[in-house]
Nucleic acid binder design. Sequence first.
DNA 1: TGGCAAATTCTGACTAGGCAGATACATTGC
DNA 2: GCAATGTATCTGCCTAGTCAGAATTTGCCA
Lengths: 152, 152
Amino acid sequence: MKKTKPDTIDTLSGGELGFLVSAVRSTIWSSIEAELQPLDITAAQFVVFNSIALGKGRTIGEFCRLLGYDSGAMTRLLDRIEKKGLVRRVANPEDRRSFLLELTPESKALFPQAKRRVQTVFKRLLAGFDEAQAAALKLALEQLLANAARTS
Amino acid sequence: MKKTKPDTIDTLSGGELGFLVSAVRSTIWSSIEAELQPLDITAAQFVVFNSIALGKGRTIGEFCRLLGYDSGAMTRLLDRIEKKGLVRRVANPEDRRSFLLELTPESKALFPQAKRRVQTVFKRLLAGFDEAQAAALKLALEQLLANAARTS
DNA sequence: TGGCAAATTCTGACTAGGCAGATACATTGC
DNA sequence: GCAATGTATCTGCCTAGTCAGAATTTGCCA
């Protein structure tokens, strides 16, 4: 049996928040997967792709920290992306232990299209949200993160 | 290198919402894991445990649909929980293909304690939220789900 | 300088979820 | 009653993430 979208839950207990957040995450993720499938890019791959394209980091380690990825997972994720020719590992002249990540010419050309597709996903998901509501959602999520950080 | 909590991101683009939701989900998840570790229960196991205890379903298939789990994943998750003696598969007299799920006496005794621990996690995460804010967060997340369902 | 702790990346072992196919049973329509 | 179809669960295979530990390189400090 394939995975199904969860039926709704009706209580208001704390656990429901966890359930909702999980469901939203998986929904966002699979919407992006579906939208990027024609380009043969997975959602995880896009996240890295996007971060490199936006210059959010330079080395593998920086992207691990930025994206909350384990270094082992990142190694293998990069292996997959590199095999598709979207990313290149380049020796870091400042530190011979590490690698810099670069887009390839092909992926630079592909990026705008992928980005646009992902943006349409979020636009669709946020339909009916005005600026204030979107900002409040973002703020609430950030507050949750801050609360968690405060006590761990 | 172990997984690290992601550093913050500074743009307002749509992708950030995906990032935030992922981070929140993983934070909730690992907070629960940490809180339940003394009881030797994982977060995934608690979710099933909790659903059974609250009578949200009866058969394996019902819990798959309720929790958005693949049936293969559920089979193996139940194997692990059953091995710990928290849950029992019981033949379903109404349908010989399926199994009903029951808590064991030990797990019934353990449940209140686990539940309490999970509640303290959410209380901590929702520190500073008043009723209206919590309700707004819940509503926003539900709206996202509804938007996704509408177009898939 | 020499030596040692820390950082960067990679690898292997393990856990876990998703999908496809298999099996057993149930239901429907004839 | 029986065939065809559908449903519930399980198994095998694949992908993916986590953790522990290794190899290499760097930086620091005596």
